[in-house]
Design a binder for these strands. Structure first.
Lengths: 331, 331
DNA sequence: TTGAAAGCGCTAACAG
DNA sequence: CTGTTAGCGCTTTCAA
């Protein structure tokens, strides 16, 4: 910048004014500066600007795993909304555990980001105080109500209850659930499992622990293996509620491997509304939590916190709406 | 930091030494400093460190669209390799066009990133000179050979040739291709189309332009629509080569909608080796270009360029190996 | 409309 | 083992 100023015969301040399109610069001066910038191939140094400004225009996004379709779609939407608000997004993987999530928070405070969107699956109400940081954080998807930060939850229990009720509605009577490994606490699996259980109770159906199959990871592979295990162990299963769409897609594969047809023998419903579910054979019925809306709200809230927008007041707890999407897998 | 230094009764330099785990700090001093840091809730200011160091430990990754499974998986792998090398990753979307890609390069030069991995689909040999920047760039996936930057190409033509030959091997004689919109130049679609054509010629099969169906975007939706269009317009098609796995999955859906069975009536093969293809019904045969290997090489090369590692010499052009993965869709 | 001075927070180089 | 000096490149403030 010094160089440009010298080459243009002006002060660095004037160069700065030109770069930032500030008024009160004579046209001829502006032209001289632009010309010098061009000749010298000048680029602003973002690091210096950040230091001076005390912010980076970068937000962090911490998700369990980027290559799970749901998080890929979530990340894409967050990136777009952030960009629209003038922010770049750095993606971190937490590995779907509590430690990774806490680490993401700790890192963020190194002022590399102006704020953090944390898609949490491992944190629970007990970690409430650990979220008390002097730094804008929005937590997505986990149920830590009345915590110190803004929080956008999914309608986990309600959605799964609706999904299960939908199967019952379609005539299923022996409905299994494929869940994650941990049914204690307030993680996604236990909340969705609760919804499954509530729907059974509401319909007067028995809860059979043998029909609840935990899978170690929420992946296609584990979903397929879980479904095969289920098909081998339990007879007469006519419905499967999967904790996520990815697990559901794996399950449809596993059921086919076991010689069961979907929806003929077994109906299947997932949760998340990922795109590919609309195109599989059969297409997958699911609970759509409105991912784009969640992304928009998360970015919007975070940006307002970063800008210290008053009128936001206390941390907010938001639960979005959901929509049951009926497709072929429950037809 | 000043504050910490004052609180600990030492100089800022000593605080810096403690933070960076440098030797030659007496244990008692280190303890005092750590204590002061703790009490004051001190965090290093990354912006200042970046300014001082002239680098950010951040690399940019520009991809067409984050929520296409292939790019999601690619991004995940790049993030992991980058992290292992001590770098964070910012993801930018180019929107799959040349302008977006050039913009990504221009932005990067604003020294926000130490380097850029550009997954290019719109740039062509004509843009070779535009890549001549004083800034480490690795181009992924596009065929700009002998350009000014390192370049990791996919075996587009060879892979599609093998995929098509595989269909011929399986007895297909009227093989269609679903491609992207542009078959001129050196984009992914035209290169893969060339492989398709080569394989037909090698087998002595006629090339029928009516069997080449361009789709406007490489999405599930367009793949499905393209397949339906194909099924309506051409009779006796017994094989489909899709330009990507995503298009292939859409196509399997579209063929089913048209009453055609895969692989009974029509065999389908894709390209990219995305995970979900192993779990669909039927599972998708594909050309696996070794995405993780590409990601590792891209990050490795970029990091060496950033570190000005000599011994790398001239920009490199690398074409990875590929592997035909035979699954149910071509059984 | 333009410029001079000062400092954001950190660390390399060197001195003690 | 610890401290001093200086400067990375930018922009806010105030003066000309």
């Amino acid at each position: 910048m010094q160089d440009v100023a010298r080459a243009a015969g002006v002060s660095p301040m004037t160069v700065s004014n030109v770069i930032n399109n500030r008024p009160h610069v004579r046209e001829s001066t502006r032209a001289k500066v632009l010309d010098a910038m061009d000749r010298l191939g000048y680029r602003v140094n973002v690091a210096a600007r950040n230091l001076r400004a005390g912010r980076t225009q970068v937000i962090g996004l911490a998700v369990p795993e980027v290559d799970r379709p749901y998080y890929g779609e979530l990340a894409a939407r967050i990136i777009r909304h952030a960009r629209a608000a003038g922010y770049q997004v750095v993606i971190e993987e937490t590995g779907a555990d509590r430690e990774g999530e806490l680490e993401a928070i700790a890192w963020s405070r190194n002022s590399m980001y102006d704020g953090l969107i944390l898609s949490a699956v491992g944190l629970g109400p007990a970690d409430r105080e650990l979220l008390r940081v002097d730094f804008p954080v929005v937590v997505l998807g986990e149920r830590i109500f009345d915590g110190p930060v803004d929080h956008i939850a999914m309608p986990n229990t309600e959605g799964t209850r609706a999904a299960t009720a939908h199967l019952i509605d379609r005539g299923c009577r022996r409905i299994a659930m494929l869940t994650g490994p941990d049914l204690t606490g307030t993680n996604v699996s236990s909340l969705r499992h609760a919804g499954y259980r509530e729907a059974l109770r509401a319909a007067g159906l028995p809860y059979d622990a043998g029909l609840v199959v935990p899978v170690p990871e929420l992946t296609l592979e584990c979903g397929a293996a879980g479904a095969r295990r289920l098909a081998g162990a339990e007879a007469g299963v006519d419905g499967v509620v999967a904790v996520t769409d990815t697990v559901a897609l794996g399950a449809m594969r596993g059921l086919a491997d076991a010689g069961l047809r979907v929806p003929g023998d077994v109906r299947v419903v997932g949760f998340d509304g990922i795109t590919v579910g609309a195109y599989t054979l059969p297409s997958l019925s699911t609970i759509d939590p409105g991912t784009d809306g969640m992304a928009a709200r998360a970015v919007g809230l975070l940006v307002r916190r970063i800008r210290k927008d008053d009128g936001l007041g206390q941390p907010r707890d938001i639960i979005g709406p959901f929509r049951l999407v009926e497709r072929e897998s429950t037809a």
